[in-house]
Design a protein around this nucleic acid. Sequence first.
DNA 1: CAGAAGATCGGG
DNA 2: CCGATCTTCTGC
Length: 172
Amino acid sequence: MSERISQSWFQSNDALFIAQKLMGKTLVRDFGNGDIFRSVITETEAYIGPEDLACHASKGKTARTSVMFEEGGLVYVYLIYGMYWMLNFVTGNQNEPQAVLIRGTQACSGPGKLGKLLELDKSFYGENLESSNRIWVEDSESVGKIISTPRIGIDYAGEVWKNKPWRFVLEI
DNA sequence: CAGAAGATCGGG
DNA sequence: CCGATCTTCTGC
């Protein structure tokens, strides 16, 4: 009964909206060997636009951030601390650099651990969530209450941006 | 071209 | 609290 979420949905909404609406939806990862990971998304963070000093796109368009300047519905992954692949979904239209960081699912809490569990790597950079045969999101009923808090690990972003309540957690 | 720091995590 | 571990960006 679950239906894959379309690229147009990611494209026609901003990161703040999508970060909240992804709550309760199902993240799917097909490893291609018969194993399929499916788990409900329970924690996200929104990173919006060039003004948001916590958003990588605030540094401008570079090889690392260019996918955020593309249309929504694509995967943005990057390696952090030399060992963790962070999973993000690009949102909004072209030249509206924004993304949603997937910080956790019911089966796995923590963005670093999730990236490891999903076996992410550089090859996922720019993957299309609507057409990919290895990673996508399926619609499902959101049950529970959404809590918002400041984002984690971005003290460098300055008082204004580091205090934005753009981290969302689903309490089931 | 060298150096620093990072949207993290686990061990002590 | 600190080290792991390596890509990316900055400054000289």
